[in-house]
Design a protein around this nucleic acid. Structure first.
Lengths: 63, 63
DNA sequence: CAATAATGTTATATTTTTCTAACATATAAA
DNA sequence: TTTATATGTTAGAAAAATATAACATTATTG
């Protein structure tokens, strides 16, 4: 599972903590997601996509 | 979490069991997903979207 | 109608995701 | 160069997703 969370987050100029709050998860969760160590639930992925103002399929892809 | 799995599955003319096999999960998982009783992982959602030849954001939406 | 296929249900087990808290390192700013 | 802010790490607990197996009901079709 690949993702571009960090790219779109920094583009928006917000911190991991801010994104975590907006998405309703802990900061550590965002850290590990950006590092590809966590595989999110669909619910979380959709929330992150919304907060990053990015279509989910631009943000995440299989493999 | 709303989804249109059943709609696109029947449109494709495949059974729950066939979709389950293609997506790599048990048939019961598909049953409960279609009924809105399960909330999928992103990985599973992407696999289902691929098998149903449908963009993930046409298939699933928050609330 | 009888048989088969498809779908639905329940209860519990296993696996995966996310949380928690504490601490560590790095980067920026006063 | 201190202080503050941002990011990274760990280990284990809690919660959520999925598996499993057995059985029930509803189509479908021969």
């Amino acid at each position: 599972m690949k993702n571009e969370i960090k790219k779109f987050r920094t583009k928006l100029g917000i911190t991991q903590e801010e994104l975590a709050e907006k998405a309703g998860v802990r900061r550590e969760t965002i850290v590990f997601l950006e590092q590809g160590k966590y595989n999110p639930s669909l619910k979380l992925a959709l929330n992150i996509a919304k907060e990053l103002k990015t279509p989910i399929d631009k943000l995440f892809s299989l493999s």
